[in-house]
Design a protein around this nucleic acid. Structure first.
Lengths: 215, 215
DNA sequence: GACTCCAGTTACCGCAAGTAACGTATGTCT
DNA sequence: AGACATACGTTACTTGCGGTAACTGGAGTC
């Protein structure tokens, strides 16, 4: 009995420890960029490397755990926007705005999740994140696809179509957001409405310019 | 005079050398994945590391040169599709199809350009490509923006709008293509028309499903 | 009081990026 | 022709990272 209790306690503190480690990793990664070394993270947590490896297996595991936290948080916000009681256009704009506000508010986190190999330090090893950044977008794409299929009537082949659109829209949002974050060419609201316009077929509706057939 | 001639000759062979090195690097990267070591590339080229560094500065430089080759080639194809004599919808579909055909035909190249950290070998160091893969998409986004602005009449604020759309569309194409390449859920033509439908506002036009306002 | 677990440590291995210092052939000046 | 500079190429090294093995100290258990 006491064995069980003790084990529970230990597991409890292990869970606790893991959270502490993740928070330390978070701090370091946000400070040093994604090239943060395991040593640096361990130091920040006040311990040494092998402990990190006991908890997370390898660097990828640590990254995955870290990414999952942020991704889950982001997806929660997006779900809220996606489920808001409003018409479709408004929901789309709300969702875009939520995403863009998130990456605007914490660009370091964003860059870590999406472009993990960027860094100030040139001796960069990267977080070999290519394996992990895709999943973030994939998850978002799949979730959006699900919402689309649940709520929009697309006729036959809707499942396929919804998935294509889910991934496509997420990619659009991501790429536009990435570019916007780098250049800040306009306020967020303008970007949101421009993208919504695009999704609303304004490209198809626009007229040609001067000579010859337009794009 | 002869000095000049000789210098020219030397530069000529330097250019030649550079091309050979790039081709060797290409082979290795396509064979071993993006984690190919500088040593391996040098060996494939029949020389040793320092020469690579003399030519390309560092690994990033080599990658950049390599990426530029492929990116230029891809952009040329896309420009051709973009400038074809047909109506807008057809051009859009042609462009999408060209891009997707390219990544379908040479997935190794594509994965190298876009997800350079993926690899079979687990001891992966990656090509710290995050710094370089973005430029590929950025260039495509900017080029598309330019074409859009040249040929489509968007009224006031067209420059901004064109850029947003350029990057957004490229991102859509990229994300959908990436997902499609991984799962191959449908033939290419279907993906192309689904994406074109999305750009043509079919999401906005579709009706709601059963209860409540749709997405 | 001896035993057994764990958390944690030090000290190490392997490997890849990048560099320094050392040949060696080629063509140039006197 | 023969001493000399220059660029090509090499070997051999340093540094710094991810990852691991083997040791250490202090909880609780019989």
């Amino acid at each position: 009995m006491e064995t069980t209790t003790q084990q529970t306690d230990q597991q409890r503190s292990a869970q606790q420890r893991r959270r502490e480690l993740l928070e330390a990793a978070d701090r370091v990664v946000l400070r040093d960029g994604p090239g943060a070394s395991m040593n640096a993270i361990a130091a920040e947590a006040g311990i040494t490397k092998p402990i990190l490896y006991r908890h997370f297996g390898d660097k990828g595991g640590l990254y995955a755990a870290l990414a999952k936290r942020h991704t889950d948080a982001l997806l929660d916000s997006l779900r809220a926007a996606l489920d808001a009681p409003a018409d479709r256009r408004e929901r789309v704009e709300q969702t875009l705005d939520t995403y863009l506000a998130a990456i605007e508010a914490r660009p370091q986190v964003y860059r870590f999740l999406m472009h993990p190999s960027d860094s100030a330090t040139p001796g960069e090893q990267g977080f070999d994140v290519g394996l992990h950044s895709a999943p973030v977008l994939r998850r978002m794409g799949e979730e959006l696809a699900q919402v689309i299929e649940e709520r929009v009537d697309l006729g036959p082949g809707s499942a396929q179509l919804a998935r294509v659109w889910g991934h496509g829209i997420v990619g659009m949002m991501h790429a536009a957001g990435d570019w916007w974050l780098g250049e800040r060419p306009c306020p967020r609201a303008e970007l949101v409405s421009s993208l919504a316009d695009l999704l609303w077929g304004r490209l198809a509706a626009a007229g040609d310019r001067v000579g010859g057939p337009g794009f």
